[in-house]
Design a protein around this nucleic acid. Structure first.
Lengths: 227, 227
DNA sequence: ACAATAGTGTCTTTAAGACATTATTCA
DNA sequence: TGAATAATGTCTTAAAGACACTATTGT
């Protein structure tokens, strides 16, 4: 059994974070990816990520937030831990462990996309570096799963939104049609949202009222749309 | 910025796994804890856990299974990744990252408890080493959350069980009464379980039929009992 | 026969789906 | 006034809750 410090070092895997940034863009769910500059997988699309820096980061989540600030210019949004991926083969540099986070971001909060950054539709995802394809699929499954019985999809919308916009967000996330009447009943009865007092402006049809989320996330005890 | 190998070593946190083994015992939900032999927290109750061993383990999950085999003598049961806990303060030995797993185990599958092993009720948990109290609370929240709309609580029962036993498992997990008639309807209509053909023996009352789970886990689109 | 619990039947209640109808805006 | 979409109302349907009732075992 190795006991010197030099040997012990090999017991510690490479520790990183990866972030799955999901948003609604042009009517579909998309994930932010960037082109890797460096090996391994130079030139391939990948999720924003980076090393955990003990001494700089107070937790894996802080590391993820640092990555999001630095690499994507994102200040404020919904984030939750997704899962942790590990093993000897996922990174050619060696046995690694990556804590993945799921961030839901309104499209208008994303800064203009640089040359090497792109929004990829989660249906028909291109090949991604490392095991990032798998991570994105897990993230989408999490969002779809929770979306059916919680207010999570609202995190994809800006602070104020119309009820039809909210319904559309649910429909895109769940991949299923929702009846407008049922939808309004449910979100209003649950006090999930409240009117801002404002209404849409600059539309050539009846303008919809604007709403905002009331307080914290909510869960339903019965599913909307798809199971 | 450090560049030598010796400096880079400090970039890598201590990587461990912890396991939350939940079971039903004497009508309540309990977690398996053991008394630590060594510092830190020698003498305190803690979750079974250990270092991830690159070279020996093929993933964090494999490391957890190794821990469960070695420390708890457990062969075969339900396991899922819970979450990852990290930071400079949770382990006095330094910046650490621990991948926690949730295991659901039938009581009769647990070997006889050694002197330094105990089942602690999750309500009124004693103080635990590290951040293990927090981890157990998260595990219980996960089980309660998923239990309301899935067949997960069945993983706490032996391979064959009666319908009243299954109902009781749900009631303990959810902390709420469930109507027997509704419960039977739901569980049978969903084809979640099937009769084994056998019945209880050695009871001085009407013996209940025995069931087993049919195939894989199921989810409901409406909650049983509590939201 | 009776104690005890397994298991069934039926009515009520809750909440979602379908879908017709009305309301409000701008051009 | 007409196009477009927001918002409401009403009936149907699915599934859970309440609870009375019947069934089956050992003593």
């Amino acid at each position: 059994m190795p006991t010197s410090d030099a040997d012990r070092r090999d017991w510690r895997p490479i520790a990183t974070v990866d972030t799955v940034i999901l948003t609604l863009d042009e009517g579909s769910l998309k994930v932010l990816v960037h082109r890797r500059q460096r090996a391994p997988f130079a030139g391939a699309w990948a999720l924003p990520g980076g090393y955990i820096r003990p001494g700089e980061d107070d937790s894996a989540e802080e590391a993820a937030l640092r990555v999001l600030r630095t690499k994507a210019g994102l200040p404020n949004f919904y984030i939750e831990q997704l899962a942790t991926y590990s093993g000897p083969a996922r990174d050619p540099r060696g046995w690694s462990i990556s804590v993945a986070f799921l961030a839901l971001v309104p499209r208008d909060l994303l800064p203009d996309l640089a040359e090497d950054v792109s929004l990829a539709a989660v249906d028909g995802l291109p090949d991604l570096a490392f095991d990032h394809g798998r991570i994105v699929r897990d993230a989408v499954a999490r969002l779809r799963g929770k979306g059916a019985y919680s207010s999570l999809p609202a995190a994809l919308l800006p602070e104020s939104f119309t009820l039809p916009e909210l319904q559309r967000a649910y429909e895109i996330v769940l991949g299923d049609h929702i009846d407008a009447s049922s939808f309004r009943r449910k979100v209003l009865d649950l006090d999930m949202i409240e009117e801002t007092g404002e209404a849409q402006a600059g539309v050539s049809k009846r303008p919809a009222k604007l709403y905002r989320l009331t307080g914290a996330a909510r869960t339903f005890n019965r599913t909307l749309g798809a199971a």
